[in-house]
Computed example of a mutant assay.
Amino acid sequence: MSVRIEHLVTAGTFALDGGVWDVENNVWIVGDDTEAIVIDAAHDATAIEAALGGRTLRAIVCTHAHNDHIDAAPALAEATGAPILLHPDDLPLWRQTHPDRAPDGELADGQTLTVGGVELTVLHTPGHAPGAVCLHAPALSTVFTGDTLFHGGPGATGRSFSDFPTIIDSIRDRLLTLPPVTQVRTGHGDATTVGDEAPQLAEWIRRGH
């Protein structure tokens, strides 16, 4: 029963600072035939539960608390009994979407989550949001980056709770130090690799100033 990565795309809206945008989100399911974790329960709890296929859901991990990454988390938690985990620095963002329902547990830098015998290490990578995290699974040669790093550059930093120099520091110090072959599985859009993104760091910094 080897651990595998499954990918679901869900559609909805992202809302912040008075604006609303249509978006498609990547939902990642990591697990074996009996148990799994979900990374970013976006938009459609029913579709995510169906993709689990009856497996035990060990945790709903939030890479950050923008509404499009957490809007389906409470419904999925209610349906499965799984705890919602979020870095506490993102609680102010969480409360904008779910003022009456707190997460069930906290994520911390260096914390490890285990599913199917595979460890995922939490990397605190602020910048896109204060409590943004990535999940590094060395055994799967993968890092799940949420909206911190995309194919082609950093996540957006033009809205509340975000900061460009901070996200650059996070990417340079926490992500580009991973093995170049590491697959970067993102919160939106196509995957990439650390090796493909690393040479562009100087250009990102130039464009950001």
Score class of each variant (00 low, 15 high):
1 M>T: 15
2 S>W: 06
4 R>Q: 13
10 T>Q: 08
14 F>T: 05
14 F>L: 12
15 A>V: 10
16 L>A: 15
18 G>T: 11
20 V>T: 15
21 W>R: 15
24 E>F: 06
29 I>Y: 06
29 I>E: 04
31 G>T: 05
33 D>W: 04
35 E>R: 11
35 E>A: 14
39 I>S: 10
40 D>L: 04
41 A>E: 11
53 G>A: 06
59 A>L: 02
61 V>F: 06
63 T>E: 02
66 H>F: 13
67 N>R: 14
70 I>L: 04
73 A>F: 05
75 A>E: 14
80 T>G: 04
80 T>S: 14
84 I>A: 06
84 I>S: 01
93 L>A: 08
95 R>Y: 12
99 P>E: 11
103 P>H: 10
103 P>S: 12
105 G>W: 06
106 E>I: 06
107 L>Y: 04
108 A>Q: 13
108 A>S: 15
108 A>V: 12
110 G>W: 07
112 T>R: 13
113 L>Y: 09
116 G>F: 01
122 V>Q: 02
122 V>M: 04
123 L>D: 00
129 A>V: 03
132 A>I: 04
137 A>Y: 00
137 A>P: 02
141 S>G: 10
142 T>A: 15
151 H>K: 13
152 G>F: 02
154 P>D: 06
158 G>I: 10
165 P>E: 01
167 I>D: 00
172 R>H: 12
172 R>A: 14
173 D>V: 08
175 L>K: 02
182 T>F: 07
183 Q>A: 14
185 R>C: 12
190 D>Y: 10
193 T>C: 06
194 V>F: 03
199 P>H: 08
200 Q>L: 15
203 E>L: 12
204 W>T: 04
205 I>P: 04
206 R>V: 10
207 R>E: 14
209 H>Q: 13
